[in-house]
Amino acid sequence: MDKPVNAPAVRHTLFDDAQALVTGTLLIALGVAMFRHAGLLTGGTAGLAFLVHYATDLRFGAVFFVINLPFYWIAWRRMGRVFTFKTFAAVALVSTFTELQPLVLRFESLHPLYAAVMGGLLMGAGFLILFRHQASLGGVGVVALMLQQERGWSAGRIQMGVDAVIVLAALFVVEPGRIAASLVGALALNLTLAVNHKPGRYVAM
């Protein structure tokens, strides 16, 4: 079979980007809801927000929004204003959706291991959608995308390493059984990115 010729990059329309931001953040917010109900953690700035939420009872959405504020400067300097605007919108949407979600969704019974796998897959799919529309959820995602674009490193593998460190740090806050399930969730999330988000695999702007 002849090797297909690489097609030129296609620019996303405003509608494309808008629906991607909403769809991706809704998937991530659902994964966050599953993790929160099961008492699990994830990595990146979301993981830090979970740690603060569990330790202080502060609202996850508000903490997540505030933790991401310093990373917008990095995004603006290294990734451009369009990426920064999309990332700010994505973070704001996830923060809002996670706070509103209890009004429309409640879990009666949710096994921690199932929550880890399914929540991780949902968040991984959400991140994949955001990445393919030149957006992220700030924090580690900004650095991972920057290194992938500049050095060709896998964004999924970078995030996997950082996430593992954050989840292990949670031993001071969460019981070991929940930590083990959280590691499974981090693996599900980041394998989704590592397998599906590679340099040159998806060409669009």
Rank of each mutant, 00 (worst) to 15 (best):
M79L: 15
R81W: 14
V82W: 14
V82L: 14
V82T: 14
F83E: 04
T84R: 06
F85P: 01
T87C: 07
A90H: 00
A90T: 00
A90I: 03
A90P: 01
V91K: 02
T96N: 04
F97R: 07
T98V: 08
Q101V: 15
V104W: 13
L105P: 06
S109V: 15
L110R: 01
H111K: 14
L113H: 10
A115K: 01
V117I: 09
M118H: 13
L121S: 04
M123T: 03
A125S: 10
A125W: 02
F127A: 10
I129W: 04
R132K: 14
R132H: 09
R132S: 10
H133Q: 10
H133R: 11
Q134K: 15
Q134M: 15
L137V: 06
G139H: 05
V140D: 03
V143H: 03
L147P: 08
L147S: 12
L147F: 14
Q148A: 07
E150D: 14
G152C: 12
G156Y: 01
R157T: 06
I158P: 02
Q159C: 10
M160A: 13
V162M: 12
D163I: 01
A164E: 03
L171D: 08
L171R: 12
V174Y: 06
E175V: 12
E175Q: 15
P176L: 11
R178F: 05
I179Y: 07
A180F: 07
A180N: 05
S182M: 03
G185T: 02
L187Y: 09
L187I: 11
L187R: 05
A188R: 03
T192P: 01
L193V: 05
